[in-house]
Amino acid sequence: MSAQQTLTLAKSRTQLRVECPAAIAARTPVARIVQFPPFAQWLEALDTQLAAGSEAGVAVRAVTIQSVDEFRAGSIGFLKFATDAVHTADGAPVPGVVFLRGGAVAMLVILRTRARDRPVPSWEDTDLVVLVEQPRLAVPDLALVELPAGMLDGATGGFAGAAARELREETGLAIGGDELVDITPPSAGRGLLPSPGACDEFIRFYACEKVVSEAELDKLQGRLAGLRAEGERITLRLVRLCDLWTSTRDLQALAAVHLWDQHNRRQ
């Protein structure tokens, strides 16, 4: 038998049934699943939509948990479920397999030496961007080059603080949150949505220009980084800003360059 819990959403007063197979509930109780921050945020956003009486006319009746993945520390990392939702006009089902992982931050770090220092934006061949190379089995690519980024994991201290911590963990660069410029479009709310057809993830983008010495540049190129205890094996790569679009398949990197350009155009 499956375990289940019925929730009453506060704004819309919708009765939502959460069902969970017994095998999953034995490891991760339903009460703990509904407290998973990304799930709680999903429920709140759904409740707001339903209470607003969207013209789309959708009714969501239940969610069925399909899998729960936990981090080594024992906290829930990822949650996958299927929704029982229909269009109220004709009862036709609404596609709704959902993968929850929560928000993330991505950082565009532009480096130059003092001799190359100039007002922004420079867009010169001498400006370098910090990228990280690591295995990404979902793709799969065992040496994917991408922008430094990371999940929020319920971090406190705001988005900028989380971005600064991720930078330090992934690259070893000590850049304070107050040095990071938020280049996320105001219209994006909490962040941009890379795959809204199946995933709740939103990404907030930050950028930073930093003057370093030639010796520091030499030390960064090829440096080994990442949290070894968490299985991260990261190698730093420096590429010219003007070559970034040909140096990675990472959509976040290309989006960040565009957002940085738009940010500087508004200054």
Rank of each mutant, 00 (worst) to 15 (best):
M1S: 04
Q4V: 07
T6K: 07
T6G: 06
R13F: 11
L16R: 05
E19T: 15
E19W: 04
C20Q: 03
A23T: 14
I24Q: 00
A26D: 07
P37N: 05
Q41E: 14
W42R: 06
L43T: 01
T48A: 15
L50E: 08
E55Y: 12
V58E: 08
A59D: 12
I65L: 09
Q66L: 11
V68P: 01
G74W: 09
L79C: 05
K80D: 10
F81K: 02
G96Q: 02
G103F: 11
M107H: 07
M107E: 02
M107C: 13
L108Q: 01
R112G: 09
R112N: 12
T113V: 13
T113N: 10
V120N: 10
P121F: 13
S122T: 15
D125T: 13
T126I: 10
V132H: 01
R136W: 06
D141P: 03
L142F: 11
L144D: 05
L147R: 06
L147H: 04
P148E: 05
A149D: 10
D153P: 01
G154W: 00
A155R: 07
A163H: 07
R165Q: 12
E166Y: 02
L167W: 09
L173W: 10
L173I: 04
D182Y: 11
G189T: 10
L192N: 04
L192P: 02
P194S: 14
G197T: 06
A198T: 10
E201Q: 11
F202V: 15
Y206Q: 00
E209H: 15
S213W: 10
A215N: 12
L217E: 08
L217V: 03
D218R: 15
K219S: 10
Q221R: 15
G222P: 13
L224S: 12
A225N: 01
A225D: 03
A229E: 05
A229Y: 07
E230R: 05
E232V: 02
E232C: 09
E232D: 03
T235H: 00
T235W: 05
R240G: 15
R249W: 05
L251P: 07
L251M: 07
H258K: 08
W260V: 03
H263P: 11
H263Y: 11
N264T: 11
R266Q: 14
